[in-house]
């Protein structure tokens, strides 16, 4: 027997009858295809804005807007397809996983296997290979996280390792051996595509810069603000998803960009439920769960305020978001619990 219990509904004491779960988790290609159509429509609209403002100062807010619509759904879609729940057809899942991981900038199988490990050992120090920052978080860690520099550095190291056929101990721990050759092939192809994009301006091709590269850089912090609040300030080393993970309220736009992953507790409890059914799942289990935290902006402002106060040695109790008991202090030196694993 293994020396662990996977972190999910069972380990969190949450129950849902099988018939309801089955009807909620039913698969279809339709919602994912509709999502692609909506995403492309948004990208066409924001891309038109970038085109119409090129050469003026307005191109910068236009590229930011375009970048948000490019980057956040790319993250969300690569996450959903890594789970294999976006579509009923497996080939569609795998094709979209490849393309969106290219945009998200992580080798797709590395994305899938480190994420399976994240679900087995959610927020367990030394076991979860997707802990993107040290905990408790300070302001320096917050900056490194939300600017995207830390993640980009990590993903580039992963690309180089895979391309060179050098597999780290974490990769070996979470990945079946037979996948390594595919990962190396993927990493080489993806690095070649990135190199071609980087070289494009030298051949007078600038549209990739205005429509892809700069928007991707500008959109990254917004994507990372979404992912930051999944687990920040919550309990490490708990078998209960209710203690380690946060859901937050959301408006339709954030729900669209994030593919309803604001229901993050629910997603970790029942990862087999596809994105479009998460609100239904949330409704079915709501009386067993803590109330979701406030919306995207308010939750992020609170997190920023807490980490700043922690770095200044001031009290760290947040006004409205959930925090693990040990995250709330009267100030003073911070004892590190977890070291980032990515």
């Amino acid at each position: 027997m293994p020396g662990y219990v996977p972190t999910n509904a069972a380990s969190s004491g949450v129950k849902l009858d099988k018939k309801t779960l089955k009807s909620i988790a039913a698969r279809s290609d339709r919602p994912g295809l509709i999502y692609i159509a909506q995403w492309l429509t948004f990208l066409a609209a924001t891309g038109t804005l970038v085109w119409a403002t090129l050469g003026t100062l307005w191109m910068w807010p236009a590229m930011l807007l375009h970048g948000i619509f490019l980057t956040v759904p790319a993250y969300s879609f690569s996450h959903e397809t890594a789970h294999g729940t976006a579509f009923r057809s497996r080939w569609l899942n795998e094709a979209v996983l490849w393309v969106t991981s290219l945009l998200y900038m992580e080798e797709p199988l590395h994305r899938r296997y480190t994420h399976t490990n994240h679900h087995t050992h959610t927020w367990w120090v030394g076991k979860d290979s997707q802990m993107p920052f040290d905990t408790p978080m300070g302001f320096g860690g917050w900056l490194a996280e939300i600017t995207g520099t830390a993640l980009l550095r990590f993903h580039m190291q992963v690309f180089l390792h895979l391309a060179a056929g050098r597999y780290t101990s974490t990769m070996k721990m979470v990945t079946p051996e037979r996948e390594f050759s595919k990962m190396t092939r993927n990493a080489r192809i993806m690095l070649l595509i990135y190199a071609l994009i980087a070289a494009a301006p030298f051949f007078g091709i600038w549209w990739v810069v205005w429509f892809l590269v700069i928007p991707r850089i500008l959109g990254a912090p917004v994507m990372l603000l979404f992912t930051l609040i999944q687990h920040v300030e919550l309990q490490e080393n708990s078998p209960s998803i209710l203690e380690s993970t946060r859901s937050f309220r959301s408006n339709w736009l954030a729900e669209f960009l994030y593919m309803k992953m604001n229901n993050h507790v629910e997603h970790h409890l029942y990862p087999q439920v596809p994105f479009h059914a998460l609100p239904k799942l949330a409704e079915a289990v709501q009386d067993q769960l803590p109330a979701p935290d406030p919306g995207f902006f308010k939750t992020n402002l609170e997190v920023m305020s807490v980490v700043l106060r922690r770095s200044l040695g001031r009290p760290t109790k947040a006004a409205t978001i959930r925090q693990a008991p040990h995250m709330i202090t009267e100030g003073g030196p911070v004892e590190r619990i977890a070291q980032r694993t990515m």
Partner: peptide, 25 residues
């Protein structure tokens, strides 16, 4: 066969069983 997870809460779709933890089929 991937990790120590019961398939009991898995989904049966078209003569395929999908594992509830990571979606292996």
């Amino acid at each position: 066969t991937h990790e120590e997870q019961s398939l009991e809460d898995g989904l049966v779709i078209d003569c395929v069983i999908e594992c509830p933890l990571h979606g292996g089929r």
